[in-house]
């Protein structure tokens, strides 16, 4: 079985609140001294794939793919250290705020170039923008079915059995490959810690580097029919104010208090 896992490198979500800054003009978060990490849901997806391969007695090949800045190579190297078999990076140096549709188009083109895959996995959403769009749009671009919020994948006689989290419980879905799944976290897919030996080896493994141009994608083609735009980006200001309501008697105070509540809620 051929599995492809998409990984996104994001700003460390654990960056302390007071260190977090946004560049309002460029409409994106500033990196500052924070580190770049692999999105946790993408790591859950990779862990799910690794376990699938283990259950299959190793009879599966796992390719990891990322689209991002050159630094995203680190995320791919770490995936190799976790024992993914192959890695590819589409280097995107453009400054534009990433539009999930444009990203999905790049990923789809890369996937078509890399080969035929039975199972394509993404995280359910990324910890930076949290749009949760890329997986579904990728399926659309590839013309494949998509199952979202999956936490367990099993293979049974050429059919994929997928366990999907919903608000009401779980759904068990059988799907014939190829299929795209978006993975959510579960106690069983906590990403493993790579062995140090494998971390060292990961830097000696080949890593395919592509550009959108290699994939025949112009900037225009990627952005066509874009529906998603970041209009403004700011950190909400938290304000605490304390008013004392006046009144001579208790009744007056309660009255003034109620009026004040109405005023404040109307203003919001």
């Amino acid at each position: 079985m051929n599995i492809l896992v998409c990984l996104k490198q994001i700003l460390d979500p654990e960056v302390p609140a007071r260190d977090f800054r946004v560049d309002a003009a460029r409409r994106e978060a500033e990196q500052g001294s924070a580190s770049l990490v692999t999105n946790i849901f993408c790591e859950n997806a990779l862990e799910t794939a690794l376990q699938l391969r283990e259950r299959a007695g190793g009879a599966a090949k796992i390719t990891v793919l990322s689209c991002g800045r050159p630094s995203a190579e680190d995320s791919l190297r770490k995936a190799l250290a976790m024992k993914a078999d192959a890695a590819a990076l589409v280097v995107d140096e453009s400054d534009a705020t990433p539009d999930p549709l444009a990203v999905a188009r790049v990923l789809a083109a890369a996937i078509q170039k890399l080969g035929a895959f039975d199972l394509i996995m993404t995280g359910r959403e990324a910890g930076d923008w949290g749009a949760g769009q890329t997986g579904g749009l990728l399926a659309e671009e590839l013309g494949l079915p998509c199952v979202s919020f999956v936490d367990t994948v099993e293979v049974a006689g050429g059919v994929l059995r997928l366990k999907r989290q919903t608000d009401a419980g779980w759904e068990l879905i059988e799907a014939t490959p190829p299929v795209v799944v978006t993975v959510t976290n579960d106690e069983h897919n906590v990403p493993r810690i790579p062995k140090v030996r494998d971390v060292m080896m990961s830097y000696r493994q080949p890593l395919t580097k592509l550009t959108p141009a290699d994939l025949g994608l112009s900037d225009e083609a990627r952005a066509a029919d874009g529906y998603y735009e970041v209009a403004e980006l700011f950190i909400p200001q938290k304000e605490t104010r304390c008013d004392f309501v006046a009144g001579d008697t208790l009744d007056e105070k309660v009255d003034a208090f109620a009026r004040r509540i109405v005023e404040v809620t109307r203003a919001l």
Binding site: R192, I193, P194, K195, V196, R197
Partner: peptide, 8 residues
């Protein structure tokens, strides 16, 4: 245990 097995 840490570097060869990642078991800790």
């Amino acid at each position: 245990l840490v570097m060869e097995e990642a078991e800790f």
